[in-house]
């Protein structure tokens, strides 16, 4: 089984749930930015949730199928077409051999996820098929898909069409709130600057990708005065190069916060003021440039409660689709 890439879209990559275990060498976990959407797409086609699918950002690909394939599209809202006929999102449907899957313009969100019954069957690298272009790992020869690529798909176990009750999806709020646990190098900021970070409204900058999301529009940060430690570098935002957490927020020069995401650099010399909690990482993957965002301070208890709520939502969906 296979499908052929007619048009690749903007930057469409093969992703699964990532390759944990190599961050200590600078190779990030990677995998779907919006894990929730990737998992549900796989559930809808009867796959294991860890199977590989496609992640397309802002623009969908055009794919032509060589065999009858069960397909589901989740994530951002983008019209889905099979030979020009509309299909539902968060619903699986059969694309017949010879038919073409294509997409209209993005209506909301930033990324769509396409799952295929049987899962994408490209070779895995370090335990994952996820594409990490900087390290030329996974995907198709370590890169995004390109016109003419023929992507192999595994053997599907069932062709049952399923549909998700959209009431089970989390409601989308505006402005978007990203919950942050302040810590790490939070003490480097003055109390006034700490308060300002949470008070300001930020917008997603154009420099927003799988490695990190940059935000602008808030006030520049003020640092607690100190003699810079040896080896850190002279800027007050510099530290002796340390490890970065997934979701951690660095602010080079105190100017524009960057939230590190799935393809994060593993370390570096900028202070980090805390991290976006694990429950809100998926949400970042659906933010378009210019989206208005507020960072909301939470405690560890609140972070863990949000994590539990996210897991329970997935459990409910599993039960509904299982």
């Amino acid at each position: 089984m296979a499908f052929k890439v007619v048009k690749p879209g903007l930057s469409t990559t093969i992703q699964d749930l990532g390759r944990p275990g190599y961050f200590h060498l600078g190779i990030p976990e990677g995998g779907a930015m919006d894990r929730f959407a990737m998992r549900v797409a796989n559930m809808l086609v009867g796959n294991d949730e860890a199977e590989a699918g496609l992640e397309a950002v802002f623009m969908g690909p055009e794919l032509s199928f060589e065999d009858d394939t069960l397909v589901a599209v989740t994530g951002g809202e983008m019209p889905i077409l099979v030979d020009g006929e509309p299909r539902e999102s968060w619903t699986s449907f059969v694309v017949k051999a010879g038919q073409v899957l294509s997409f209209g313009f993005l209506k909301s969100g930033a990324r769509i996820y396409i799952a295929f019954g049987g899962g994408i069957a490209t070779p895995s690298a370090l335990g994952s098929r996820s594409t990490y272009p900087i390290g030329a790992l996974g995907g198709v020869e370590g890169r995004a898909i390109a016109a003419g690529d023929v992507i192999p798909v595994g053997k599907a176990t069932d062709m049952t069409e399923r549909s998700l009750d959209k009431a089970l999806l989390a409601p989308v709020e505006t402005p978007v709130s990203l919950r942050v646990l302040p810590d790490l190098y939070w003490h480097r900021l003055t109390p006034a600057s700490q308060a300002q970070f949470f008070a300001d409204e930020w917008t997603v900058a154009p420099e927003a990708d799988r490695m990190g999301y940059r935000f602008r529009g808030g006030a520049p940060m003020e640092f607690v005065a100190r003699d810079q430690p040896f080896g850190a570098g002279s800027d007050p935002s510099n530290i002796v190069d340390g490890c970065y957490s997934y979701g951690s927020i660095q602010v080079p020069g105190g100017q524009e916060p960057i939230v590190l995401h799935r393809d994060a650099v593993s370390g570096g010399g900028y202070f980090t003021l805390g991290a976006v909690i694990s429950a809100d990482m998926d949400l970042i993957g659906q933010l378009q440039p210019n989206t208005k965002v507020r960072f909301v301070e939470v405690t560890m208890e609140q972070a863990l409660a949000a994590r539990t709520a996210r897991r329970e939502r997935l459990d409910k969906i599993r039960a509904a689709l299982g």
Binding site: D183, Y244, M300
Partner: peptide, 16 residues
């Protein structure tokens, strides 16, 4: 310190 709800960050010294 905590890096979100999934990381503990241990800084042995500020300077290298």
């Amino acid at each position: 310190s905590f890096g979100g709800d999934e990381h503990v960050y241990v800084e042995v010294d500020e300077e290298m």
